[in-house]
Each structure stands twice: as C-alpha cells, then as structure tokens.
Nucleic acid binder design. Structure first.
Lengths: 263, 263
DNA sequence: ACTAATTTGTTCGTATGTATG
DNA sequence: ACATACATACGAACAAATTAG
C-alpha cells in the first residue's frame, strides 16, 4: 500500500515501485483518499509540491491530476492554487422532460444536486454530437445528483454557448436547467433521443457515487433538440442498484406482427 | 485548417503551428473527422504512424488519442493495433414491443441460440408474476444467444404450459420464440411491461457470456401479455458492451447515431 | 513452441508559453 | 517585475503484451 515516511522534517510518501500498479494510478487513488478525508480543504497542493512529496516526475503527477480534474474533483487554473471543488448541497427540482427519472419522482424521493462544474469550454467530441465545429464554445454543467440524500447519478450537460451563455450566471442550486434555459433564452426543448447502456463505472465515478465494485451503472447519452436544432448533449451515469428504467407498451398490432414474424 | 501534402510519395498532414490551437486538439478533431468519414474502418493507425504522418511527437499523439479512448471512440491495448470501437452491435428503440431476435437480425448480425433448458416445470415466484397459482406448470426455455458467433445474452422465458406446451418440441437454435408461439398456438403478444436495470454479472453469467470484469449487463425483466392475459415472463441478461436501448421523444423511428462511453 | 519484432503503456527528463497573484 | 502553477510540446527509455515468423 502507500506509506508515509518522515525524514529530516520532510514528510514524503512512498509508492509501490514494483510496477504492479502504475504510479499515476496509485497517486490518483491516494489523492482521492486524502481528498475525501478533508485533508485538502484548506488548499490543494500544486504539481511541484506533489513531485517533491511523492518523489515522482511532474509528468506522472500531471497524469494523475488530469483524471481528478476531468472528474471534477479538483478545479485548477493557470497560476492559481488548485482547489477542491466545493460541494454545495442544494435542492434541485427534477427535469420534467427527463423520462428516465419519472420513476424516481413517482417514488417521492427527495432530489438534490451538487453543482460541480459550470463554465464555458470547447470539446471536439461533444461538439460533434451537436453537429457543431470542434472548437465551438459550449456551456458545460456538471451535477452530482442525490436522491434521499445519497448519490445516484452524475449528470453532465453541454449546450452551445452562442445560445446558452445567459445561463452561466444562473444559480442552479434551486432551479432546473430547462427552467433557466426557457426563462433566460426562450429556448424550450421539444424533442430528444437517448441511448441507454450498461457499464462498469470507473474508480473515480465509483468514488463520486459512493458505490462498491458490485454496482453497475446505466450510462445514458441524450441529445435534446429545440425546433429541430440540437441544443443539448447530455451524459448521465446512474447507479444501477437503486434505479431502473421501466417501459410499458400498449397494444400495437403492426409493430407486434413485425417483431413476431421475423424470418 | 488542416491540409494534406504529398512529398516523395508520402502523404503527410500539416497542422497549424501558430499556437492558436493546441496541436493535440487539432489532431483529435482531424482524427474524429476521418473516423466519421469511415477512413479507419479497415484499422486505426498506430501511434508511431501518426507521429510520422502529422510530424508531431508521440506525446502529442497520445494526448489526442487519450481523449478518443476516453470517449470510447477507439479501443487500444498493449501490443495490439488500436481499433475503432463499435458503439453497440445492436440498438433497440424502447417504444416498440421488440424481440431480441428481430433487433439482432435488423443489425445485420448472424443469429444463433444454444438451448440450455427446454422443459415444463413449476415455479412459484414466476407464476406469481404471471398472475397464476404457484403450482401451475410452466414451459421454461433458457437460451444462450449468440450474435455474430459471440455470446450476446442469456435469455430465460416462462410461459403457462396450458397455453405453450406445443412449443416444447420446437428447435430454437435459429428461430424466434414469438414466431414459434404464433405458428403453433396462434398466440401473439400485444402488450408488455418491462423493467431495465444495470447489473454486474455473476461469475457464472460472466463465464457463459465470455466477458471480462469490465463488462456490465442490462438485466431486463419483462411481462408479455396477449389479449390482456399475461402469457410470458422473461428475464434477459444482455452484455452491456454489445447492446443499447434507445428512446425517442416524441415517438419517432429515427435512431441515435452513436453512443460513446465515457471513461 | 519459441523467438524476434512490433506496438502500446508507463515513466523519466527538459523546455517554453501563459495566466495569476 | 517576479514567483507560482498550469498548458503544451519535444525527446528518450524501458516494460508488457501481442503478433509475425
């Protein structure tokens, strides 16, 4: 495991150099541990500090930090001390358009969200999903969603900045994304396509969702449209042990015949 | 933007070195473009090939590839040529009464089943789901379903024997249950209710499906009805990496192009 | 079945640019 | 102006896994 070693007044942390596990992964895991223990509430150490502390190269440190930043656990800017992203526990109403959470709503569970990221950025992959150029600025909102006070989903949404910039100043702690969007831009989603699959969450996602290795997740990708134009790309990772999608099909003779008489 | 340049029979691609946009991002965007154009269907180029091709360092190439891998567009392993990842072999719209057999066929994959169990038995729990007495005899069919020759799903179905006895002599290796049922009994399903959740397969299921610990499954419980009467209880365990469910609002038959998995 | 070549994964070092405090 | 800290980019080496012969 990871040990501590006091030498000449300097605390250094030892990693396993056998190669059994990559250094950057050990570092990442250790940092998540210390982070969850509240060790960095006063401030997150810089890259060079970590290089000194763990006796690894800066490249290795960055490899670990990159994941933490990508997962929203740490926010960092140039020349500024990195900080642990604040976990502001706030009430958040359900997105009524989101049929996936209909069962949650029906179950009468308390819905809360922690806003982890709210900024403007570019993302080539997401832009492609919205039929936009790769460099198009996008408003990005990431929330950890809680039901009955416990994490149940990680929700990431991207919208074209050209359209959605007014919402970046919004306080999402008490308002739904769609409500703010409609109020400030007049845009109202009227169509969506989504794809639901089963995945094993990454360690980082597992840490956020506070679930063990025996829990799988539903990974939901969704494109929302307004007036035929794609205005939202969303990815939601839902704990599979607490939530299920239900579907009910009324009688439809045509489709039935097509499905039953194949070949 | 990005140009092509033929020199001494070698096609190299020029990136903008002004620093306006990071090289790795330009590379990422260009690769996505080429990927969507189907240029890599025969095989994704290796890191060193890209280094040669774009005249950048391997570090920069890896930075671009990392995003593509993180977004699930490309899969890479040690010593093996990276490949373009098929999002999912099969996608199934949620708004129809579907049959696994039909959706696999629709995806253009060869369909085959290994019949593991086909008999008549009683099951109190399942009978309850069908609104029947606990001792009611049920026809039970368990199949390991293969798509393109590879394990795809474990499918267990129970039907009232009083209704479905004629099917126990059928050969299900290459035929759909619904087709046999309609042919031999005249019963056609016209309604269903199902619940879909994500689970981690048990070691036994994992062995049957021949998948590693990184693969989750969709667990689908379904009650099928005909003329208002429950006639089928089904449990299907589908490999999450090969199957995705799609939903559309408002109801339409257009499909989501691609569902990537975030890592 | 074994060896060698290939390819990705990991890790180090170094350098420059840029934004913040 | 200066130090700090992240972003980008180059080069080099070895490990680990696969594939080709």
């Amino acid at each position: 495991m990871i040990g501590e070693c006091e030498t000449a007044g300097v605390t250094s942390r030892a990693l396993d150099r056998s190669g059994a596990r990559p250094l950057w992964r050990q570092l990442q895991d250790d940092l998540i541990h210390r982070l969850r223990a509240g060790e960095f509430d006063a401030g997150f150490p810089g890259e060079l500090t970590l290089v000194e502390d763990y006796r690894v190269s800066r490249h290795t440190v960055r490899q670990a930090l990159q994941r933490l930043r990508a997962d929203g656990l740490v926010v960092a800017e140039r020349g500024r001390q990195p900080r642990v992203s604040p976990a502001a526990d706030v009430e958040q109403p359900l997105d009524t358009l989101y049929s996936l959470f209909a069962s949650v709503e029906a179950a009468g569970l308390a819905q809360r969200s922690v806003v982890r990221v709210l900024d403007v950025r570019a993302d080539g992959v997401v832009a492609d999903r919205l039929d936009l150029e790769g460099s198009t600025p996008l408003v990005h909102l990431e929330r950890l969603r809680l039901a009955a006070g416990r994490p149940f989903a990680i929700d990431r949404v991207w919208l074209p900045a050209e359209l959605a910039t007014p919402i970046v100043t919004a306080d999402f702690t008490r308002t739904s994304l769609y409500a703010v969007l409609a109020e400030r831009t007049g845009v109202r989603l009227d169509a969506s396509r989504e794809s639901i699959r089963a995945v094993v969450p990454t360690p980082a996602e597992r840490a956020l969702l506070e679930c063990g290795p025996d829990v799988a997740c539903l990974s939901v990708h969704r494109q929302g449209r307004a007036g035929g134009r794609p205005v939202e790309w969303r990815h939601t990772m839902v704990r599979g042990d607490r939530f299920a999608v239900t579907a009910e099909f009324p009688a439809d003779t045509r489709r039935l015949r097509r499905g039953a008489t194949t070949r």
